[in-house]
Simulated assay, not measured.
Amino acid sequence: MKTSRGHIAWLAVSGVVCVAITIFAASAYVTLDMAQARPALRGPVHYGLLVTHIFTGTVAVLAGVSQFWPGLRAKHPRVHRVLGRVYFAGVLPSSVLGVVVAQLSLYGLATSGPLTVLSVLWFASAVQGLRTARRRQFGEHRIWMIRGFALTTAAVTGRLWGLLLGALLNPADDAAGLMVFATANWLSFVVNLLVAEWWIQSRGYTRALPSSALRPSISSRSAQSSASVA
């Protein structure tokens, strides 16, 4: 599929924004000073888990941005594969730690709920992306990578939603501020997934898949397993 200049420009701008916001968010934890942590913490162990979650998530964002650059897979397949492995090495531990950190939140279900759902979906999409790549089902792999990266960038869009809602609603107390934060967390990945699904359908990625990939039968799965063994 031919890539237009507008598409390339959109990828470049969104990539720069993702990288800039991610680095800014992670900068507060580079010094490992617990006093600079943005959320309230239960103690050093909580902080250590949070920092590991943030740094591995940062790796995932930085590596993931490169995976969507046009021509990288075609012109530099080895670089694409290496960065793909780096991406999964960031997503898998960060998503697991995301569940743990969410349960340790001092702000209750309003914040732990959306962060838990996000982390579980993030892990599942990464597993699917890795599995389809190993099976060389590259059409399905591309679709799962789009979904997965939409969840990866929830850390970026969540901050943008928080700023927008805070400016519009101007919360006057802690309870209102918490509601804004919780709403931003839900919007961060729900809207991203909706946009990702629109993108997948509008680009015709599902139409390019074989029918067996859309509704695999028992025989087709057995054939795929036999082919992978061979």
Rank of each mutant, 00 (worst) to 15 (best):
A133P: 02
G90N: 07
G43L: 08
V96Q: 00
L62N: 05
G139R: 05
G57I: 12
M145F: 06
L109F: 13
F68N: 10
P77G: 15
F88C: 12
V101S: 03
I23N: 02
G57E: 06
R136P: 00
P114H: 03
T52H: 06
S27T: 10
V82N: 05
R85G: 05
G71K: 08
R85S: 07
F55I: 15
F138K: 02
R142V: 08
V86P: 07
G48W: 04
T31S: 11
F24W: 14
P114Y: 03
R73W: 01
V120H: 01
H76C: 10
P77S: 15
V82E: 05
A126F: 01
L97P: 08
C18E: 04
Q103A: 13
F24E: 11
R136N: 13
I146V: 13
R78D: 14
R142S: 09
W122R: 01
Q128N: 12
V99D: 00
L32D: 10
V19Q: 03
G84K: 02
L130H: 02
T132K: 10
A35R: 15
Y87E: 00
G64A: 11
W69G: 04
L62F: 07
C18V: 12
Q128Y: 09
A35N: 13
H141Q: 14
F88H: 04
I23V: 15
V99R: 04
G98C: 05
H46A: 11
P77I: 13
H80S: 09
A40E: 15
A63H: 05
T132Y: 12
P39W: 01
F123N: 02
R81L: 11
A126K: 04
P44A: 01
F68I: 07
L118R: 04
I54L: 10
A28Y: 07
T31Q: 10
F123T: 01
R81W: 11
H80F: 10
S112Y: 03
T58Y: 01
F88R: 00
L104C: 06
L121G: 15
P39V: 05
V45M: 11
G98Y: 03
A37F: 04
L83Y: 10
T56A: 13
R42P: 00
L109M: 15
F138L: 14
R142E: 04
T132I: 08
R42S: 11
L109T: 15
T116L: 09
G48A: 03
L109W: 12
F138Q: 09
M34D: 06
L104A: 06
V30Q: 03
A60W: 04
Q67S: 09
V100F: 08
P114W: 00
V45P: 02
W144Y: 03
A37H: 05
V45E: 08
V100S: 06
L83S: 06
L97A: 07
P70S: 13
R131G: 00
H141K: 08
F88T: 07
L32Q: 09
A102H: 03
V127L: 13
A40M: 11
L72K: 05
A20L: 13
V117W: 02
A28W: 06
F55P: 06
A126D: 04
P70R: 09
W122L: 00
A133K: 00
L106I: 11
A133L: 01
V117G: 03
L72T: 10
R134W: 05
G129C: 09
L50E: 04
